[in-house]
Computed example of a mutant assay.
Amino acid sequence: MFDSEKMASSSEFKCVEFAVVDKEDIFFQVEHEDLESDDFKKENNKCFQKMIQIKNNRFLVVDEDVLTFKERNKEQCKADDCRFNIQVYRNNDIDKPRGSAVILSVTSPCKQTYMVCCKNGDQEGVSAKPLEQPLPDQIGSSQHEAVFFMELIPGTSQYRFESSLLSRSYLSFEAGPDAELMKLVLREVPEDCVDENCSMRLLAC
């Protein structure tokens, strides 16, 4: 589920009251509306489905809560586990134009999961969590575990995804213990540096 504490913005800027009506209705009541709000608002007409590909014809796949890159042929790419719904949000933080704010999710016949940043001890990573309610219309914070900034890499047709929660940390890939296994990870990248392992293609399903 989305964490209401992470979705509530700091009182330094405004007061946000969060309420849940039944299980599927979520709304926010914002006080001090004369102040600028740093938040994300869902763009209802901007949700599209793509496959995420890296080198060697590998596609990002959700297997339970694990995100890995696997080789897929044209027929295998029809499976739901590699078709990502990319929901765009309007970013009201005008000081940081860092690409399009998005939430990535996958819908399978049994369940829907969404991609989030997570911590395992001192290590930051990324995993898939069950989506137990619809994506929120508004997130009352400029940082959230499930929001990434999708940016077209200049001079290419590839994209990279920066975490809104962990600045300068990007979705990336690295080899696992098995040479055939490529894992999705979060990688910290210095400013003005391009890391090829963060470059990904978005392909039509």
Rank of each mutant, 00 (worst) to 15 (best):
K78C: 13
A79R: 04
S199C: 14
S11E: 10
E71C: 06
R160N: 15
L184S: 09
M182A: 04
S37W: 00
G121C: 02
Y159D: 02
S10L: 15
E180F: 00
F148M: 14
R90W: 00
A79M: 09
I52W: 08
G155A: 03
K74I: 11
D195I: 05
N120Y: 00
P97R: 09
L181Q: 15
S4W: 00
V16Q: 01
I153P: 11
V106S: 11
S37L: 02
Y170V: 02
S167E: 12
C117M: 10
K42F: 11
E132Y: 01
Q133F: 08
R201H: 08
E33Q: 08
E36C: 08
D63N: 11
R90C: 03
C47Q: 12
K119H: 01
V147T: 08
Y170G: 13
F48S: 14
Y170I: 03
A8G: 10
S157L: 12
K23A: 03
K70V: 11
Q123C: 07
A8T: 15
M115V: 14
S127G: 02
P154M: 03
V66Q: 13
L203H: 04
L203S: 09
F18L: 11
K70S: 11
R72I: 02
M7A: 09
K55N: 09
Q112I: 05
C77M: 13
R160F: 02
V21P: 02
S169D: 03
D81P: 07
N91T: 01
N44D: 15
S141G: 10
S142L: 03
P130K: 14
E33V: 07
C205Q: 06
C82A: 06
S164E: 09
C15Y: 03
C15I: 06
L131N: 04
S100I: 01
V185S: 12
P177F: 00
C47Y: 00
S100G: 00
I54A: 02
A204Y: 00
C82H: 05
C205L: 08
F18D: 05
S100E: 13
S199V: 00
E24D: 14
A128Y: 03
I103G: 07
K55Y: 01
V62W: 00
R83M: 13
R187D: 09
E12G: 15
V147D: 11
D63K: 06
H32S: 10
C82S: 08
M51V: 13
E132A: 12
K78E: 15
C15D: 06
G155D: 01
V88T: 14
D178V: 01
K55H: 12
E31S: 09
N197D: 10
A146C: 12
E145K: 14
E64Q: 13
A79F: 01
V185Q: 12
